[in-house]
Computed example of a mutant assay.
Amino acid sequence: MDTNIKHILIAGGTGFLGQALENYFTDKGKEVKILSRSGKAENHIKWDGKQPGDWLAEIEWADVIINLSGKSVDCRYTEKNKKAILASRIDSTKAICKSITMADKPPQLWINASSATTYVHSESQQMTEDEGIIGDDFSMNVCKQWENEFFNCQLDHTRRVAIRTSIVLGNNGGAFPKLKTITRCLMGGKQGNGQQYFSWIEINDFCKAIEFIINHPEIVGPINVTAPNPVRNYYLMQQLRKHLKVPLGIPQPKWLLELGAKIIGTETELLLKSRNVIPEKLTEVGFKFEHEKIDDFL
């Protein structure tokens, strides 16, 4: 890793991805600080995610800032939750933009979270950064406004990359433990018609991709951070049953998923949207995945 990069600041770094990045870069000998709302841990700096504050000194300290802030989309899309999902992303991006413009020594690189959900549901066309179709619904419009806020920030000395991340798989958080649980409960059949694509990336590959972006100054703009081989939902569930040695998986039709989503307080989009996303720019620059295929990961 670039020896000039010593200090990494992660905003919203208390979740699954933030903790994985903190451990990864700490193991590489980097000093990592976290901007969090509690500010309780030793290396955590308190912020509200809305306005520049005392944490401006950490912007001066950082060589790289990674912004992962945002309310979880694993909820019902009520009007209240929709407003909170959008505001948490826009407000934190604005606050970091203001702080960088105020800094005498701005960070070399700002990586801002985005999502592979920015692309339309697709069961055929692969979505690359240049050829992908960005649609017009709540989730896609959140991503569009989020990225617009990020790239409209006027900065002279800080490189910017928006990471359009797919579903990140690992044992310590995110979607994978939940998929294993439903499979062990014999509910691991196909979801909906099972033809929707599942774009994914293994957690260590995600961390390696962030390191790769840091080390390659030619990478700018939106980048798809996802494994190169999306799989159909029916195949994902079939292989999960195989690896967990579960003989039966009851299929879950759309109507049943809709009912279940209401009961547990989430949306079926997380399961039924076909994310057929390809990491064209990462692979063009030479990034190598440890886990290119879902079977390797499982």
Rank of each mutant, 00 (worst) to 15 (best):
V120R: 14
I34W: 01
Y24T: 05
R37E: 01
D27C: 01
V73P: 13
K50H: 07
S115P: 15
K98I: 05
D27N: 08
S124T: 14
I96D: 00
G29V: 04
D63F: 08
D74M: 14
L68M: 07
P107C: 04
P52A: 01
R89W: 06
K94G: 02
D48M: 08
M127N: 09
E129M: 07
E123D: 11
A57V: 07
I111M: 15
Y24G: 04
N23T: 09
D130F: 06
P107T: 06
T101L: 15
N43S: 08
G15I: 03
R37V: 02
D63A: 05
T101W: 12
A103E: 08
E60I: 04
L56D: 10
E22K: 15
I133V: 07
S69R: 06
V120K: 14
K40N: 09
A87T: 13
I66Y: 01
K94A: 03
K28R: 14
N23D: 09
S88T: 10
T101I: 14
L56C: 08
G53A: 02
I85S: 02
L86Q: 12
S124A: 06
A20K: 10
L21S: 01
K105Q: 13
Y77D: 11
T14R: 03
M102R: 15
A113C: 06
S122R: 12
W55I: 07
S99H: 06
S38K: 14
C97P: 10
E58Q: 13
S72Y: 07
A103V: 07
I100W: 04
I45M: 02
S114I: 13
C97E: 11
K33M: 03
I66M: 04
S92C: 02
I66A: 01
A95C: 05
D130C: 04
C97N: 14
T128C: 12
T26P: 07
H44M: 09
I59W: 03
D74I: 15
K94I: 12
W55K: 12
K94S: 08
S36G: 03
A87R: 15
S88Q: 12
C97H: 13
T14S: 04
K46Q: 09
W110S: 05
N67I: 06
I133L: 07
Q125K: 12
I45G: 00
K46S: 01
C75I: 13
I34A: 00
D91R: 14
A41C: 02
N112D: 05
E42F: 06
S88Y: 09
S69N: 09
C97F: 09
Q51A: 04
K105F: 03
K98L: 13
N112R: 08
D27M: 04
S69W: 01
I59C: 02
M102Q: 15
L86D: 06
L21N: 01
K40T: 05
G12S: 05
T128Y: 12
L17T: 06
E42W: 08
K46H: 05
N81D: 11
K80V: 12
E131C: 07
Q126M: 13
A87V: 08
S38H: 09
A95S: 10
G12C: 05
A87I: 07
K83Q: 14
L68G: 01
T78E: 13
W110N: 09
